[in-house]
Nucleic acid binder design. Structure first.
Length: 375
RNA sequence: GGAGGGGUGGCCGAGCGGUCAAUGGCAGCAGACUGUAAAUCUGCCCUCUUCGGAGUUCGUAGGUUCAAAUCCUACCCCCUCCA
């Protein structure tokens, strides 16, 4: 039987490395999940995504609900089959769109009424409906519907928002249909307030979830603040269940968060940046749009094994990005995802070797260098 | 040879007496991007600047006017049609 569960192999301070067992295969933690909002990791084939070492990807309730609709995906055999991703899939609940599409939705106790950004049609997303959609998508990990509280938020506002998310979390738990190897994650909110985060943890733990996410961070508060929030809010979550920091982040954000007890991450940064010309490398973050790469015959990252680095020059990658060619977006996305997965492998090895603190310092120092001229 | 049309900042192209250092677009130079309304968005883009401004621009040379990219004259180029 493939019961959904986390097995911790080694710990290093608050950090842990191990494996999550799911109905769709194992996930080595800490893990990074590439974002595939509308049923595709943009500019990548599933094989390529898998090839970088990614084991789990994200999909999105809101986007797939509108198009092609969860009912259609279900009819076609579920999201795994539909997009040819046989591994685990986690679907966000639409909670982030509550924030990012704030102008296109109305909140009530019942749920969120979205006005489609595609055609203006109205769609009621209640906790129950969010569970139904994610079930139809056949998500391995279903996320509870929450409100991603914007930053900054007054304590009273953050409290009201968090408590609404907790009431919704309970309704999600009740509506969720348990299946072997599948999971439902609750999402902690509370903005930057320690008391609210603790209250949220207690509420979620009381309800009981298969995993716990930390939401509402990396929304403009800055790394220092995010880390100080994580310092107190992560350990209030059960330590025998996966802990997922939603929407994070830069390499240094990820390592620093692992150091504070996080097991799972997702972020659009490697894919979006890949499409807009920014590459993460072992020599700093490089903007491939810059004219200084025009005649550079060297590889983007000499130590990287991805096709962009092993088969092409910086000059060619620069040319592709410059001319807006699709291949440029593909190659840089590929590279960034490879870099992120290499980073996660490095993190896991560092935990195993009990040297994550040093590893984190190196990552942060590298990022602080910024866009240096490498090699 | 005749009749028209036109020459505007790297390119294309608005403007047609003052509110014009001159709309836009492209190219160029940078920046941003954190549960994706993003192959997107933002800034700069004549020269100098203490960023308040200052100085030179709209084919060339004159002229009219308080004021000209805009009106007049001459000249130099370019395009279209006719012969």
């Amino acid at each position: 039987m493939t019961r959904f569960h986390l097995t911790i192999a080694t710990t290093d301070g608050k950090a842990r490395t191990g494996q999550i067992t799911t109905a769709h295969g194992p996930i080595d933690t800490p893990t990074f999940m590439p974002v595939g909002t509308v049923g595709t990791v943009k500019a990548m084939t599933p094989d390529a995504v898998r090839g970088t070492g990614a084991q789990m990807i994200l999909g999105n309730t809101y986007h797939l609900m509108l198009r092609p609709t969860s009912e259609r995906v279900a009819r076609l055999g579920g999201l795994h089959k539909f997009m040819d991703w046989s591994g685990p899939i986690l679907t966000d609940s639409g909670g982030f769109q509550v924030m990012s599409l704030a102008k296109l939705r109305k909140m009530s106790e019942k749920g969120v009424e979205f006005q489609s950004h595609l055609d203006g049609s109205k769609h009621m997303l209640s906790p129950e409906r969010a569970m139904e959609i994610q079930n139809q998508l056949d998500a391995t990990v279903t996320m509870a519907l929450d409100e991603c509280t914007p930053f900054p938020a007054e304590e009273k506002v953050a409290a009201d928002s968090m408590r609404l998310s907790m009431r919704w979390a309970k309704r999600c738990r009740e509506a969720f249909v348990p299946r072997e190897g599948y999971a439902l994650f609750g999402i902690q909110q509370g903005s930057v307030y320690e008391g609210l985060r603790a209250e949220s943890s207690a509420a979620l733990t009381e309800i009981g979830f298969d995993g716990y996410a930390v939401g509402g961070l990396a929304v403009g508060e800055g790394q220092e603040t995010m880390f100080s929030v994580l310092d107190h809010c992560v350990t209030t979550l059960p330590d025998d269940k996966p802990r997922y920091l939603m929407g994070v982040g830069r390499p240094s954000d990820i390592v620093g968060s692992v150091l504070r007890g996080i097991d799972m991450f997702d972020c659009v940064l490697p894919t979006r940046s890949g499409r807009t010309g920014q590459a993460f490398t072992r020599r700093g973050t490089v903007n491939m749009k810059n004219a200084r790469h025009q005649d550079d015959s060297r590889p983007l990252d000499e130590a990287c094994t991805c096709p962009a680095c092993t088969r092409y020059s910086r000059a060619y990658l620069h040319h592709l990005i410059r001319t807006g060619e699709i291949l440029g977006a593909m190659l840089l996305t590929w590279h960034n995802l490879q870099y992120y997965q290499d980073l996660m492998r490095g993190i896991r090895a560092a935990i195993t070797d009990h040297r994550l603190t040093a590893f984190a310092a190196e990552t942060a120092a590298l990022e602080a260098l910024g866009d240096i001229d490498p090699l």
